[in-house]
Design a protein around this nucleic acid. Structure first.
Ligand code: FES
Ligand code: FES
Lengths: 158, 158
DNA sequence: TATTTCCTGACTATTTTACTTGGTTATTAT
DNA sequence: ATAATAACCAAGTAAAATAGTCAGGAAATA
């Protein structure tokens, strides 16, 4: 009962964007360094996020990505869905046909579970999540790490 | 956001066992046929289920498997846990160390989600699930399928 | 003793995930 | 202009997980 980790990366990256919302664009290179995700992998994820209207890409120097809506209006479910998988917990993919064209014994169970997971994720916005105490501590730690590592700071770290 | 499907097979097989609870042992060959799961794969799954005390194996002719507790006392969560993965939704596996030894941004999110999933599955017993209307319809369909296919019926199908 | 069925371990194919490579375009700064 | 920056794009690859096979044993029954 593992959950696929692709969505995890997307959510992490989106949170990084949310942290710097209103401060101009953030480059994928920055996110890659701060969150420890491969740059090219991020590019693939952001292609999806962009096509689903969650982020805007800005090319050229000084460019990067930024949220296309305020972080109060983007839920974790939005991000997961944009990545392309939805929350598909059934084997049949909602078609009710995985046992020789007919509904299998457990279809209803997984369908319900999928619904629950989605509801849960819908209830959490990027903004509300970042305001949690534990999460905020991580944000501050990452900013300190960056300040130590790089002589030229990210413009957003005061 | 797919869920691993290994647990799905285990739950399906356990439901088959629950259907025939109190009617003697059911062979893996029967389950394999009724639910469309490979026999050798079932054997691997049942090794786990047995080690975790959910089922009892009986060897020799007339043998098979049966639940070691009544289906009212086995939850779907029990089955999933026995299969060995637990409901591990975090990347770090609960160690809070997936970003260079420290807690990553999203740890709390996945940990909470995992908790919700587990609670949901704890609340569903094999017995209660089989009593649902939709599910019961599938059970009856499978019994009819069997009756048509095999001249010598499963002893449990009257 | 022959058959049935569980039981075990190792091995293989397939799929998914995570990542790389090698580019191209658009934008800005010099 | 031209050089630097950074998004964009299309493949291809490496590693891991999943799903399944194979070949044989060991206990129980008839
Ligand atoms: S999971 Fe939908 S029919 Fe089996
Ligand atoms: S998921 Fe636990 S620290 Fe990242």
């Amino acid at each position: 009962m593992r959950l696929s980790t692709k969505g995890r990366y997307a959510v992490t990256a989106m949170l990084d964007l949310a942290i710097h919302h209103g401060e101009g664009a953030v480059t994928l290179a920055d996110i890659s360094e701060a969150q420890g995700i491969s740059l090219s992998y991020l590019e693939q994820l952001f292609a999806r996020l962009r096509k689903n209207g969650l982020v805007e890409g800005i090319r050229g120097p000084g460019g990067g990505y930024q949220l296309s809506r305020p972080p109060t209006e983007i839920s974790v479910a939005h991000v997961i869905d944009a990545i392309g998988e939805g929350v598909d917990v059934t084997l049949c993919g909602g078609k009710t046909d995985c046992q020789e064209g007919e509904r299998c014994l457990t279809h209803e169970l997984w369908q319900q579970l999928g619904g629950r997971i989605h509801e849960f994720l819908e209830g959490i916005t990027l903004d509300s999540f970042l305001k949690r105490k534990n999460v905020n501590a991580v944000v501050r730690r990452q900013q300190n790490d960056l300040a130590v590592e790089t002589p030229r700071l990210r413009k957003t770290v005061a």
